[in-house]
């Protein structure tokens, strides 16, 4: 496992930040790496990652919306990643017109047996998105309605909400999350990216 916190030059730094500056300074709107994880998506590794990210996001930004998104994304690694192969996770931040923004990005190998299930959820997510957009007079998507429908549906898995996590992320995100399966030469991978704004 490798958890790194990066500085402005994007070089590798210590595991835990010790400076007292804001997480990211107004830096011309460029994304800055705040934390990176490359390792096996085991429970112990992801617990360590989550603890580190809580320090980065909550203790220094006091923002629960972003940390809630972080929880879902980190736990998705354990739900959907091949436990024997390396998963990648990155948290980035930037200041946009003085407002802090976060981007969460992950790329993890998916077990071949899980690909069809994950693709079904992505298809379901996409279809629900299209249906909801079509049903709105102004074309705007009401993610909250979609969230309630998914929450109240009987669909679920032992360890997850059968796609509800993706919809809950979309509800809170700046723009709908990007989710797709990449069929790479060394096996299928799940790409996920979501951008969050702080609540205050």
């Amino acid at each position: 496992m490798d958890i790194r916190k990066r500085n402005d030059s994007d070089s590798c730094c210590s595991m835990i930040s010790t400076d007292t500056c804001p997480v990211f300074s107004p830096s011309k709107g460029r994304w800055m790496g705040l934390a990176t994880f490359d390792g096996k998506p085991s429970t112990s590794n992801l617990d360590t990652l989550l603890k580190h990210l809580e320090e980065v996001v909550v203790q220094r930004m006091e923002d629960r919306r972003v940390f809630r998104a972080v929880i879902e994304c980190v736990q998705n690694l354990e739900r959907h990643a091949d436990p024997l192969r390396t998963a990648h996770f990155k948290l980035m931040g930037r200041s946009l017109n003085g407002e802090p923004r976060f981007k969460i990005r992950s790329l993890n190998p998916v077990q071949k047996g899980d690909v069809s299930q994950v693709e079904r959820w992505i298809q379901q997510y996409t279809s629900l998105q299209e249906l909801t957009v079509a049903s709105m007079d102004d074309g705007a998507l009401d993610w909250r309605i979609l969230y309630r429908q998914c929450l109240d549906s009987g669909s679920r898995t032992p360890r997850g909400g059968a796609g509800l996590g993706w919809v809950s992320l979309a509800k809170a995100a700046v723009t709908p999350p990007q989710i797709r399966i990449i069929h790479a030469a060394n096996g299928p991978k799940l790409f996920f990216s979501v951008e969050m704004a702080c609540t205050r």
């Binding site: 809630r68 929880i71 679920r156 360890r159 997850g160 509800l164 809950s168």
Partner: peptide, 13 residues
């Protein structure tokens, strides 16, 4: 509750 994940949200329902 301070935080709950979506898996928990189904169980709360």
């Amino acid at each position: 509750l301070e935080y709950f994940n979506t898996s928990s949200s189904k169980c709360l329902l």
